[in-house]
């Protein structure tokens, strides 16, 4: 009667070593691919900002040529909307890279602030020339020394959503005051900003954290005046 032969066990070391090597190779390739993609993404954002810069330059040129005439408004508003959209997309991309992937490019961020500031100034001009009813909200924050700044940003977005439902358009321009951006520092000096977070709504300054209801109330009271 065959009882059954006990087998000699072995550990397939070459198998596991091979699997380890494959895993390491894929892992390392993945790290490189990730880095290449990150660099490519930053390059794309830089090109987007150049594109915005060209559009801003075109509008400024047109304004000079048309001698700030309001008959130029339809073209002006259309171009401005396009610039705002492109700036917003760049802002979203930068936020994603910073918040989700911890990728910070301070020079790119400063370029972004420059374009944002130009868009803000053009929007201010549009309000004067073309009677644009949009509310311009400038938000000053710090990533270094402001515990409530991230929450404040979220509350401003919530307020914007709520007001859009009531037919009020709010354009948001946000600047990090501690990044060494001369444009941001200039605007802070202009509005006498001394603490974070601070918001400037159609030129009026409000300091300290405000939830979405408070932000909405400020804007709605301005609209009703």
């Amino acid at each position: 009667m065959v009882l059954g032969v006990i087998m000699e066990r072995k550990i397939s070391v070459p198998l596991y070593a091979g699997a380890l090597i494959i895993s390491l190779v894929i892992f390392i390739i993945g790290i490189f691919v990730g880095q290449i993609i990150d660099a490519s993404n930053l390059q794309t954002i830089s090109e987007d900002l150049s594109h915005v810069s060209q559009k801003v330059a075109s509008i400024n040129l047109l304004l000079l040529m048309e001698d700030n005439s309001s008959s130029f408004c339809p073209v002006y508003m259309e171009q401005l909307q396009s610039i705002d959209q492109e700036i917003e997309i760049v802002g979203h991309k930068l936020t994603y890279l910073e918040e989700e992937k911890n990728i910070y490019d301070s020079e790119l961020k400063k370029d972004y602030f420059v374009q944002e500031a130009e868009s803000y100034l053009l929007s201010k001009k549009a309000k004067q020339l073309c009677n644009d009813s949009s509310i311009l909200l400038v938000y000053f924050y710090s990533n270094v020394d402001c515990a409530s700044c991230q929450d404040q940003g979220i509350e401003i977005l919530k307020a914007r959503d709520e007001l859009l439902g009531k037919g009020i358009t709010v354009k948001i321009y946000s600047f990090d005051g501690d990044m060494g951006s001369s444009v941001a520092e200039s605007l802070m000096t202009q509005y006498n900003i001394v603490s974070y977070p601070s918001i400037v709504v159609n030129g009026a300054v409000y300091s300290g954290y405000k939830d979405s209801n408070a932000v909405s109330s400020i804007i709605q009271s301005m609209v009703s005046e």
Partner: peptide, 19 residues
């Protein structure tokens, strides 16, 4: 975070990484 609903579309593709 709350703001993701605004950025996910524009940031689509940026998330390609090691994982």
């Amino acid at each position: 975070p709350y703001y993701v609903k605004y950025i996910w579309f524009d940031a689509f593709g940026l998330g390609v990484d090691l994982f």
